[in-house]
């Protein structure tokens, strides 16, 4: 516990706090229009999408799923994610609650139109799949020099 008082740990903690607040601020107050392909709240997997001038970041909350069992495709600006989560329960047990999603899923999300399907990156950590798609150069705001 005292470790938190040392400079190093504090730094990591601050960094984490900053990150957490950033996400709270960004996604917590979001009240934008709902996409036409968006699914009802509580759908599996939950998805957050954020955009910056350079790229679009998609976060897929897919706990307990092996990344290589996911099927991800990007056609123009339509990102499609499908897969299956099998929640296996041992035999001869008494079951009290079964709330976790079990079965196959398919979700489609509309990304901004200027994404470049050839420049996609995906990584997985702690059950969150993070897909990054770069945006095309020509639409980025460009600074115009006055000579």
């Amino acid at each position: 516990m005292l470790g938190y008082l040392s400079g190093f740990d504090n730094d990591i903690f601050d960094q984490f706090e900053r990150m957490r607040r950033q996400m709270d601020r960004l996604f917590g107050d979001w009240s934008g229009a709902t996409g036409i392909r968006a699914m009802a709240a509580g759908s599996f997997p939950a998805i957050n999408v954020g955009a910056s001038p350079e790229q679009v970041d998609v976060y897929v909350f897919a706990p307990g799923i092996a990344p290589d069992s996911l099927d991800i495709s990007l056609q123009q600006n339509l990102l499609s994610i499908s897969g299956e989560r099998k929640v296996e329960l041992p035999e001869n047990v008494q079951l009290y609650r079964r709330e976790r999603f079990n079965g196959s899923f398919h979700r489609t999300i509309t990304l901004p139109e200027d994404v470049d399907p050839d420049r996609v990156n995906a990584s997985c950590r702690d059950g969150v799949l993070h897909i990054t798609v770069q945006r095309r150069e020509e639409v980025r705001p460009r600074r115009i020099e006055v000579s």
Binding site: L26, G32, V56
Partner: peptide, 21 residues
């Protein structure tokens, strides 16, 4: 538990199913 996710600078939300951390 707290969600920790790395996000780039200057990001604007487009869609959010997860609204808390």
């Amino acid at each position: 538990g707290e969600i920790s996710i790395s996000m780039p600078e200057g990001m604007e939300p487009i869609h959010a199913d997860v609204r808390a951390t």
